[in-house]
Amino acid sequence: MVHLKTNLAGLTFEPPLILASGIMGQTAGSLEKMIEMGMGGVVTKSVGSDSREGHPNPSIVDVETGILNAMGLPNPGIDEFCKELGKFIPNKPIIGSVYASNTDHFVGLSKKMEDHGVSAVELNLSCPHAEGYGASVGSDVGLVRDIVENVVKNVDVPVFPKLPPMSDMVTISQVVEDAGAHGIVAINTVKSMAINYETGRPVLGNLYGGYSGPGIKPIGLRCVFDVYKSVDIPVIGCGGVTTGRDALEYFMAGSSALQLGSSIYYRGLDAAEKISSEMIELLDQEGYGSLDEIIGLAHQ
């Protein structure tokens, strides 16, 4: 039986399925719960310097092929958030996600996360529905380079930029690798919107949201494929992984680990456990002896 375990930037993920940022990541209690339910690691809610309430509801729409969300980065601010985490140190890696609009804030937030004891820092360069943050930052290659370089210089834990889906994934990936990133998370949700024909109105309070779930899997696969072939640092794949089959395909595109978000909605809190056992079954069935054998296999 294949053992599901990945070593990545000095961290061990067992299984290599990580709770994505923005899902059940706001409190120590919910992060702890997700580890209990089979996640190999967790990413916190994206946290900024100051508290933010997020966008007005509706902040979620089910569109059959997936989900649109426009939470709008609600968070209590880094100091309050660290207080919330308190003494919570899980037995699996915990990755602190941070967002900001400039380098100094990214550095400050990352240092606070590190001081608090996180295993790695994820830089949110990709949230598609918070004006001035996330993807607005990630689309500025010069700024991305500066942020990654300076965060890497100032913290000792691994640094993982999370990238938005872009038509050119190659340039940005090479930039963050040159800047010293220890791995790349791809992709965040896809900017999108929902309109209700009966009322003639956009549904989301923020008008725009991020598309996730099964519908974006082909987009995520392509992005991971492109990132893998452009850089040597590991790729953490994300985007519509709902089943063991999806997971295998993402590993074959070049992922060394995966993040799960919407699958919590489609499969339940124990999504990681279900996907793990499906992966093991499929790997055995296809005659693979280890996960490493399939990482990047689609690039043959």
Partner: peptide
């Protein structure tokens, strides 16, 4: 509550949604 479907974590009480 924001999402109402168990994803966002806004309504979590001690890990219970």
């Amino acid at each position: 509550m924001k999402c109402g479907i168990g994803l966002c974590g806004s309504c979590v009480v001690d890990g219970l949604r």
